[in-house]
Every structure is written in structure tokens, then in C-alpha cells.
């Protein structure tokens, strides 16, 4: 039986102490990158007159930040317990692993909300681009990318729980591995075959394909969204199963040694 109070406590444990820092970090990176990408795409758009280029680049960047922030914060939650030697205290309490997982996942909602809020505000303020024009499509895209962030985050957690601090570099770097293959700024059809093969099995690809489709036609593609949803459910389930198995495996050598 899942205890909602304990899930809420886990949520507060990761959100409250770092709340100011979390907001500042999201705001800082979004502002800097939106200005860099916005200015670059404005210049290219003038030179090559590619329609909607700036819109595609900025939407892509803001939405990719959801994947990146959610996976980073998921992995950091576990990493913080390992570095502060609190992992044993937490899992020697009545807290279930499933409750910890749900608590950490709920933190992703906060990151998604603030990335969307600041991302839309900054792009509207500097470049008069309103991501809210995407309507419900924006919400679907954000939720699907949050799921992608979770599955990447739990994959990193699986390695962390086995290898401990030795795997710390992965916390900040593994999320980037998925970026070149997620077709954030370019269509799937324009890629080399080997990249296409990888990209076509990633749920993020179909979200960004759908955004480009929307910017071109004004409609969104249910098929692309469903493909992304199916792959996200599959990978999220697999990543959580792998994490649970790795957690059990880690208990064979004691969580104290992580």
C-alpha cells in the first residue's frame, strides 16, 4: 500500500531546500541560451529566409530543457543522498522504494512548470514568440518530454545506485547523449541513415517532429504524439524496472557501500 504522506514528504524534501537555487538556475540558462539561439536564428533567417526558423529553434530549445532539467533533477535526487551519506537513513525508514520513485517523479512536474513558464516569458519578451500559440499541443509536448526526462533520469539512477560516487559524471552528462538523436532542431528526414535509425526509436524525436508539423501547418499530429507516448511508456517502465533491479542488486553489497 502506497503512503501518500511519505510521497509528499519526499517531494518536499527535494523541492523546498533548493527551491530558490532551482528557479535561479532554470532562469539563468534559459535566458542566456534563448538570447544566443534567438539572435543566431534571427540572423540565419534573414540570410536564408527559412520560414519559422526562429520559432522552431526557440521552441525546440525551451522544450528540450524539460527533458534535460527533469533527468538532471531525478538523478541529482539520488546523488545527493549518496554524497551526504543519507541513503541508509532513508531506506532504513518505512519509506518504500516505490514511494521514493513517485516522490522524485513528482519533482519533475515542478521543473516542467518553471521551464515552460520562464521559457515562454523570455521568448515572448525578447523575440515576440509566444509558445502558448501551440495551445494544447504545448501541454502534450511538455508532458511527453517530462516522461522522457524521467526515463533518462532513472537510467542514470540505475548506474548511480550500483557504482555510487564513481558514476557522478554521468549525472550531468548522460542526458546530453540523447540530444543529437532527438531531432530537436532538424527534421528526422534530413538525417543520415544511422542517426535516423537511433532517432526513430526515441520518443523525443516525435514530439519535436510534431512541433515542426504544427509550425508548418497549424495542426498537430495525433499519430506523432501517440508514437511518442507509446515509446515513453515502454522506456519509463523499463528504466524503473532496471532501477529496481539495480537497487536490489546494490542491497546484496549493502546500500552503505554505495
Amino acid at each position: 500500500m502506497i503512503n501518500l504522506n511519505r510521497i509528499w514528504a519526499v517531494f518536499l524534501r527535494y523541492v523546498v531546500p533548493s527551491f530558490g537555487n532551482r528557479i535561479a538556475t532554470i532562469l539563468y540558462w534559459l535566458t542566456l541560451n534563448i538570447i544566443i539561439w534567438g539572435s543566431t536564428s534571427a540572423w540565419i533567417q534573414k540570410q536564408a529566409s527559412v520560414p519559422n526558423l526562429m520559432n522552431m529553434i526557440i521552441s525546440g530549445f525551451v522544450l528540450w530543457q524539460i527533458v534535460f532539467r527533469v533527468n538532471l533533477e531525478t538523478a541529482k535526487s539520488l546523488f545527493e543522498e549518496i554524497t551526504s551519506q543519507n541513503l541508509v537513513n532513508i531506506f532504513a525508514s518505512p519509506l518504500k522504494l516505490s514511494e521514493w520513485i513517485l516522490g522524485v517523479m513528482s519533482v519533475g512536474l515542478v521543473d516542467t512548470f518553471f521551464v515552460l513558464l520562464f521559457g515562454t516569458g523570455i521568448s515572448w519578451y525578447f523575440y515576440d514568440i509566444s509558445l502558448f500559440d501551440m495551445g494544447i499541443n504545448l501541454l502534450f509536448s511538455a508532458l511527453l518530454l517530462m516522461m522522457s526526462g524521467w526515463f533518462i533520469g532513472f537510467l542514470i539512477c540505475s548506474i548511480l545506485i550500483l557504482k555510487g560516487k564513481k558514476a557522478q559524471d554521468l549525472v550531468y552528462s548522460l542526458g546530453y547523449v540523447f540530444a543529437p538523436f532527438s531531432c530537436i532542431y532538424y527534421p528526422l528526414s534530413s538525417q543520415y541513415d544511422w542517426i535516423k535509425a537511433i532517432s526513430s526509436v526515441l520518443p523525443m524525436t516525435y514530439v519535436f517532429e510534431n512541433i515542426r508539423y504544427f509550425l508548418d501547418t497549424g495542426n498537430y499530429s495525433i499519430m506523432l504524439l501517440l508514437k511518442s507516448l507509446g515509446l515513453n511508456i515502454l522506456y519509463l517502465a523499463l528504466s524503473i524496472i532496471i532501477f529496481v533491479l539495480m537497487f536490489r542488486s546494490s542491497k546484496n553489497n549493502s546500500l552503505a557501500s554505495v
Binding site: 524534501r13 531546500p17 533548493s18 545527493e80 543522498e81 554524497t83 551526504s84 551519506q85 543519507n86 541508509v88 537513513n89 552503505a256
Partner: peptide, 8 residues
Amino acid sequence: YFKLAGSL
């Protein structure tokens, strides 16, 4: 041997 959460 085990500390509590350092950030709290």
C-alpha cells in the same frame, strides 16, 4: 557512520 541530508 551515516549523516542525515546535508542540504536540509
